[in-house]
Write a protein that binds this DNA or RNA. Structure first.
Lengths: 205, 205
DNA sequence: GTCTATAAGGTGATAGAC
DNA sequence: GTCTATCACCTTATAGAC
């Protein structure tokens, strides 16, 4: 399922090169739009050699998605029950925005998969992801009950945070096209916008 | 470029059937993930017959995107300079949410295209779309100067509205997976959340 | 206008030498 | 472990009969 168990140095290096190349290609063209040839080229290997490390194209894709899910959820895990509610959520928003800026390929990899119905990761969504989200929604609901946060639906709050941050990676082409030619500093503009926006919507008055 | 000029009744009917089928298939699998066979089947035509109406697979895709762009931008065009600023924007948010609910395939068609770098509609993005957005941003900026709206970046406000509404179509699989098994009424929950959220973030205090 | 048949090229995966 | 060669299949698009 996950290809050759990486033992020798060269195997580790090649496995890593393949996954790096696959991330580059899959995130740009989606699963069906990417070819094994493209990935092998980008990894600096021949196609049969690549298929010596991973049995199928799908195995590479699956390994990527599974391996990145933890990284992807880390910012949400950090949400701390004992912190100041508004600051905790603003912090989460800004961490997600930073990830969109620094890991846009990872964001688009997931976006490509989910927009097409998430056929290959629906289990992870309905499992680990769902559990984590529900856990953090309980935390948020607790804050609301204590009067420390405006009364909003926690699930839809989290969805809105995902949407407003990840769009800067997923729909980058559109955002750059509209902001052209002044699109150099748009991430810091976005950070300012999102911080102001979420703070004013979440603060109890 | 746009296939046979529809003159006879049967030509109109078939052209419409092809575009309807293509929307169904392209929105689900993306351009590369869709096959002419699938579209022909869905349209109830043979593959050569379909290619009698449109010269290539790409021509069908292009015609779809171009034809839907107007529909897609209609809610933004409606934004009225003379209305109440907060209500105008809330109205826009709710119209977009309704579109995500009623036209999810159209939303995913664009999402699929844009997430992969918008190769086939970058011109429309940098043309009509950009012009309309800039025009409406001027309106919003005017409201802010008059003190009728909280001071936020108009471009990023519009981006956030797109993101928070279209996600309910584009990332439907993820949202349903997380809300399971109670996901029947999530659009009305989303409407309530978004209205409260945008109203409290945009109202001048 | 619509069909069957097929050309032409791409794509995932394997065989077998080294 | 890596390569060249190749298979088997899929996919877009066309030819030509009706």
């Amino acid at each position: 399922m996950t290809g050759v168990s990486p033992k020798t140095r060269i195997q580790k290096k090649n496995t890593r090169a393949i996954l790096e190349a696959a991330l580059e290609i899959f995130s740009k063209h989606g699963f069906r739009g990417s070819t094994v040839d493209q990935i092998a080229d980008a990894a600096g290997l021949s196609k049969p050699n690549l298929l010596y490390y991973f049995p199928t194209k799908e195995a590479i894709h699956l390994e990527l998605l599974a391996g990145l899910m933890d990284t992807w959820l880390a910012p949400l895990r950090q949400l701390d029950t004992d912190g100041d509610p508004v600051d905790e959520i603003i912090g989460y928003v800004l961490r997600k925005l930073t990830m969109a800026q620094e890991l846009p390929r990872e964001s688009r990899l997931f976006a490509n998969e989910i927009v097409q119905g998430a056929p290959r990761i629906i289990d992870q969504i309905e499992g680990d992801l769902r559990d984590l989200v529900n856990e953090k929604c309980d935390v948020i609901q607790g804050w609301i009950k204590q009067g420390k946060l405006a009364d909003v639906d926690p699930h839809h709050l989290i969805f809105s945070i995902w949407a407003t941050t990840q769009q800067y990676a997923d729909f980058d082409a559109q955002i750059r096209g509209i902001l052209r030619p002044r699109n150099d500093a748009h991430f810091s503009d976005a950070a300012r916008f999102l911080e102001t926006f979420y703070r004013s919507a979440l603060t109890v008055r």
